[in-house]
Simulated assay, not measured.
Amino acid sequence: MNCPCGSRAAFSHCCQPYHLKVKAAPTAEALMRSRYSAFVVADAAYLYDTTHSSKRKGHSKSAYISNAKNTKWLKLEIVFSDFDVVEFKAYYLNKKFQTEVLHEKSNFRLEDGKWYYVDGEFYEQG
């Protein structure tokens, strides 16, 4: 299966090793792509584990799994990527089966050699 992150590589050679903790995402963009893939495959543990500890209080594994299972993700588009910031568009189907876009500029933190999602700024669709 091709990786959901859009890399065109096989999932088993792209994001899955991060999900399985065989290796750590080397960049903020790699972590962002792997988190998108985790939403697609409903890997709540990975989403929780890669959220910075200072931000986990508002997120639970059950909330992640509910969100992941109730959303049909279509594709990921990276708009901009820098050292610790990634702007992306994630396309998904809403309940009326219409395509919508989640457009976010996400902030990441490198801590003890591992990247973590901290927070993000959402852009209005328009």
Rank of each mutant, 00 (worst) to 15 (best):
C5F: 13
G6T: 14
R8H: 15
R8L: 15
A10S: 07
F11Q: 05
S12F: 06
H13T: 10
C15L: 05
C15M: 03
C15A: 01
C15G: 01
P17K: 10
P17R: 07
Y18A: 06
Y18Q: 10
H19Y: 09
L20C: 03
K23T: 12
P26D: 01
A28I: 05
E29P: 00
L31S: 02
M32Q: 03
S34I: 09
S34V: 07
R35K: 13
R35S: 07
Y36S: 02
S37Y: 04
F39K: 00
F39A: 00
V40I: 04
A44S: 11
Y46W: 09
Y46H: 02
Y46N: 04
L47E: 05
L47V: 04
D49A: 13
T50V: 05
T51F: 08
H59C: 09
H59P: 03
S60Q: 10
S62G: 00
A63R: 14
S66K: 14
N67L: 14
A68C: 11
K69Y: 09
T71E: 08
K72F: 04
K72D: 10
K72Q: 14
W73A: 13
L74H: 09
L74N: 11
K75T: 11
K75A: 15
E77T: 08
E77F: 07
F80S: 12
S81H: 12
D84V: 05
D84T: 07
V85A: 00
E87N: 05
A90L: 05
A90R: 03
Y92D: 08
Y92M: 06
L93G: 11
L93S: 12
L93A: 07
N94C: 14
N94T: 10
K95L: 13
F97N: 15
Q98G: 13
T99P: 08
E100P: 06
E100A: 14
L102K: 13
H103V: 04
H103L: 04
K105S: 14
N107L: 10
R109D: 08
R109M: 12
L110F: 11
D112R: 14
G113P: 06
G113E: 03
K114C: 10
K114Q: 15
W115A: 00
Y116S: 04
Y117G: 04
V118A: 04
D119N: 12
G120N: 03
E121D: 11
E121I: 14
F122L: 12
G126T: 13
G126R: 15
G126V: 14
